[in-house]
Design a protein around this nucleic acid. Structure first.
Lengths: 248, 248
DNA sequence: ATTCTTGCTTGATCTACGTCAAATACGTGC
DNA sequence: GCACGTATTTGACGTAGATCAAGCAAGAAT
C-alpha cells in the first residue's frame, strides 16, 4: 500500500514498519541480533492505558500500528495532550525509571518494545544508537516548542488549521492527492482529543472545523475524512510562516 | 556568595560556574583539555540578539551569567517564549546546523561556547558526553511539556503562580529564606517577558500579580523582589499536584 | 529641579472562547 | 425496522482575559 507498512526484514528488525529503523538503521548485523533478542510485541485495545504517569517503565519501543497519546491531567480533570504517537514513533526515556505522562491507546495499538535494561546496555556499546536517540529527542523538543507557540498565541481557528497541516505532514504515509491535486487524509482523533491537543473545548473544535468548511478551506466526507483543496491556503490560516512547499 | 558562582577550576573547566560541568562532569583529564581547547567566552549586551532563528550556528555552550530567552515570533508580531536560559543552562543542538529560535539576552550575558564541529567530533569519541546531552535534552523536553499544560489549560492566576514556583525552583542558587522561613527571590524578567512566557498580555500579568499580593500569597518589595511566606500555598495556587517539599 | 524614558499599574470596555443544553447523525445489536 | 450509545453539531448565554487608554514611579539625561 505504501512504504510505511512495508516490513523491514532486510534490516533484521523483524516485522517492524520501516521507520522503526530509527533505532537500528546503522547497526551492524550482530547488534541487530542483540536488538532482536530483547524485543517483543504487545497489543493494546482502543481506550486502554499503556502506561500511567509515575509507573515504573521497563521498556522503550515504537508504535507499530494504531494511535497513542501522551497526556497530562490536573487534579480537577483538565487534561492537555503533550504528545501524539503515530506508527513508527518512539516511546520511552532511556536512563529514566518512571513514566512522566499517561500513555493511552486511542485506537487498537501494537507496540514493538525493547526491554529497557538490556537496551541501555546496548546503548553504551553502540554509540550511534545514543546519537540517534539524541536526534529523535531534539526533534520532539522542536515539535513541543512549535506546539507551545500554538497553545500560547494562536486563535482557535489558527489552532485547527495548524493541527490539520501537522497531521497532513506527519501522516505522510496516508497522504494522497486527488486528480486535481487536493490533499486527502483522515483525522486520527476524536473532536475531544483534538481539543486536548489544542487547549480548546470540543465544542470550539467542532465550530471551527465547520467554519473552515463553510469558508472552503477544507471539505469533509463524514466526520473524519478531510480534503484540502489548497494546502497553501491552509498554511495561511494556520498563521505559519509559509515554509510552503514541504509537500510540493 | 553561593555555589552557582563558584568556579569549577578543579574540573579543568576554566572559570565556568559549577553546573557547567553538565557537559564535562565525567570526562578524563585529557578530554577536558580538548574541551578547553575549543572553548571561548563571549558577552552580549542586555537586549541584544545572540542568535536569530535560521542563522547558522557554529557553537554550542552554556550561559555563565545573565538571562537569555528562546522565543518564536509570528509574522504579525505575536511572540511566545519557548525557553528561558539561566546561568549554567545549555544552548545548542549538536548535529543541527541552523538555529530554530531567536535567542535574546534580556540582561548582560556571558556565554561559554564550544566550537561546534570539534565538539561534535569530541562527542563521537566520548560517549558519556552524548549521554549527558541526551539526558539534558530529555530534561528540556519534560520542561516543555509541563509548560504546554500551563499554556493550554491553566488560568491566568495559575500561570503566574506556576511561573513563580518554577523560578523559585530553578533559581535555586538565589533562594534564600527569611528568619520565618519565607522564600525570597528576584524575578528575572519584565512583565512583558513574563507575558511572553505565559501566553498572556502584560496587563494580565500585572493584574494577577497584584491579586496574589492582595490575597497574601506573595509579598513584593519593589517590582521584582518576591517574598513567598508559604510555598505550599503558592503550589496550590499553581494547580500543581502538590509534590510538595522539593524545597522542604 | 525638570524632563524623558521605561516599566508597571489600574480602569473601562470588548470579544473569543467556554459553559450549559438541546438536537442530530451514525453505528451496532436486536 | 427500531432502540440505544457514542460522537458530533449547533444554539444561547456568560466570563476570563484582551484591548484601549490613562496614570504613576523611578532612574537617567539635561
Amino acid at each position: 500500500m505504501n512504504q510505511s507498512s512495508a516490513p523491514c526484514l532486510t534490516q533484521g528488525c523483524g516485522d517492524c514498519p520501516i521507520r522503526h529503523r530509527a533505532v537500528c538503521a546503522r547497526c551492524e548485523p550482530d547488534e541487530l541480533q542483540l536488538l532482536d533478542e530483547i524485543k517483543y510485541y504487545r497489543t493494546y485495545e482502543a481506550g486502554s492505558h499503556i502506561i500511567w504517569a509515575g509507573d515504573r517503565m521497563d521498556f522503550v519501543g515504537s508504535v507499530v500500528s494504531g494511535i497513542a497519546t501522551l497526556t497530562q491531567t490536573m487534579e480537577d480533570g483538565r487534561t492537555q495532550m503533550v504528545g501524539l504517537l503515530l506508527p513508527s514513533d518512539f516511546v520511552g526515556r532511556p536512563g529514566r525509571d518512571g513514566a512522566a505522562y499517561d500513555v493511552t491507546a486511542t485506537s487498537d495499538v501494537m507496540m514493538c518494545c525493547f526491554r529497557k535494561k538490556p537496551f541501555e546496555q546496548l546503548m553504551v556499546r553502540t554509540p550511534h544508537i545514543a546519537h540517534r536517540l539524541l536526534e529523535m529527542t531534539l526533534d520532539e523538543l522542536d515539535a513541543a516548542r512549535e506546539w507551545m507557540l500554538l497553545l500560547g498565541r494562536k486563535t482557535a481557528r489558527e489552532k485547527i488549521a495548524s493541527f490539520l497541516s501537522i497531521i497532513a505532514r506527519r501522516d505522510a504515509s496516508l497522504n494522497l492527492r486527488t486528480a486535481k491535486g487536493a490533499l486527502v487524509f483522515d483525522l486520527p482523533l476524536t473532536r475531544e482529543s483534538m481539543a486536548d491537543y489544542l487547549g480548546l473545548t470540543l465544542e470550539t473544535v467542532s465550530r471551527q472545523i465547520s467554519a473552515l468548511r463553510k469558508d472552503g478551506v477544507i471539505e469533509l466526507e463524514g466526520k473524519r475524512h478531510v480534503i484540502v483543496p489548497d494546502f497553501d491556503r491552509l498554511l495561511e490560516e494556520a498563521g505559519d510562516d509559509s515554509d510552503g512547499g514541504m509537500l510540493a
